[in-house]
Simulated assay, not measured.
Amino acid sequence: MPTPTSPIGVFDSGIGGLSVLQALREVLPGERFVYLADSGNAPYGERGDAFVQARSARITDWMRSQHDVKALVIACNTATAAAIDGLRDGNTGLPIIGVEPALKPAALHSKTHKVGVIATQGTVSSHRFAALQAANSAHTQFVVQACAGLARAIEDSTRPSIPASQNATQITALCAQYTSAMGRFGSEPGQIDTLVLGCTHYVFAADTLRSLVGPEVTLVDTGTPVARRTYSLLHATGMLRKQDVEAGAAALEACQLFTTGDVSALRHAAEQWLGLPATCASSAIIA
């Protein structure tokens, strides 16, 4: 049975969920984390719901049986949309926190009442996204763009076998293609003044996106709200780990990363984006 010292599990179809893990480590500095990048099956956004549901269930079983996690964060918009209800039904007693595009905060922030949303096809086609959009459309127009290939390109950017310049060119081209298809960005009436990053991978292309949409446009992601929600749930159930100085100092050693894909890519991402040592990443086989 999990205890307050048990780790928090986090999973994504690949390395995009590291953006959520980064926020979790900032909000919960004394906690232990187990992160799984299911890169051998990425990206989920180009898979069907049945596959994502089955895969999410298998990963949850692995997190519970191998690491006795006290909470599970689904750091993937597509997996949240397709699988979170079933996972909660099948894992009563385990807090399960999902991510979804931050449409409500974006709608509240927008001055032009026109908000752009970029996400995977799997996310924008889901019933969960449709309900979320409908619930926040009373005073806001959402311009929704599915971005085929962008999550994959960002995933590939961590692979040493692909030249960095080649990958950066591809990411920039895809970002330019999709943002230009959405219309005009800016702070004037009728322009999109807020852009929702509806895939955790996209956070790692934020600089490129900002250069394309302009400095007046606000980019919104979900990492910090998810981290705060995780904190609240653990606090309410008395499952927070004592966050003293010693625990904080040990945080780097308390982060285990696993991947079903290329471990060198995960190690590179961990060093580049989280400042973690490459030794914290290992391969995992989850049949």
Rank of each mutant, 00 (worst) to 15 (best):
Q191C: 02
A130M: 13
T208W: 07
S283G: 11
L219W: 12
M239G: 06
D12V: 02
G190I: 04
L150H: 03
T169N: 12
R32D: 14
A278D: 09
K104H: 08
L257G: 01
T158C: 15
N77D: 05
Q243W: 10
I84N: 05
A37D: 01
E155A: 09
V124I: 14
D68K: 12
D221E: 14
A134F: 09
V203G: 08
G116D: 07
A83Y: 03
R229D: 15
A278I: 07
V34Q: 08
L72A: 00
L108D: 14
G17K: 10
V34P: 03
I162E: 09
G248N: 12
V117M: 01
S264L: 10
I154M: 11
A130L: 13
G186L: 12
G93N: 11
H67K: 05
P163E: 06
E253H: 14
S211T: 11
T140V: 05
E100G: 00
A71H: 03
E26T: 14
V143Q: 14
S126W: 13
L197S: 00
R228Y: 12
N136P: 06
E188Q: 15
H127G: 13
E253I: 05
A81L: 09
T224L: 10
A153C: 11
A23F: 12
I97V: 12
G86Q: 05
D61S: 13
L132H: 06
V115R: 01
L240A: 00
A265T: 13
H109N: 11
G14F: 08
Q166A: 15
S126K: 01
A102Q: 03
R55C: 00
G248Y: 10
T260G: 01
F142L: 09
T140E: 07
I154N: 07
A250T: 12
D68T: 13
A138C: 08
G40S: 04
V10T: 04
P101V: 00
C280R: 11
V217L: 06
K242F: 12
C147H: 06
G48F: 08
L108G: 08
I96Y: 03
P215M: 05
H139R: 15
G275K: 06
P43E: 06
G30A: 08
A176T: 08
P277D: 06
A176G: 10
D207H: 11
S264R: 12
H113A: 03
G40Q: 07
A278H: 11
S165E: 14
V99F: 07
Q166E: 15
T112H: 00
A227Y: 09
H201M: 10
C76W: 02
E271V: 00
A173F: 08
S161F: 10
S283R: 14
V73L: 08
Y178W: 02
T194N: 08
L274A: 01
D221Q: 08
T112N: 00
Q66R: 05
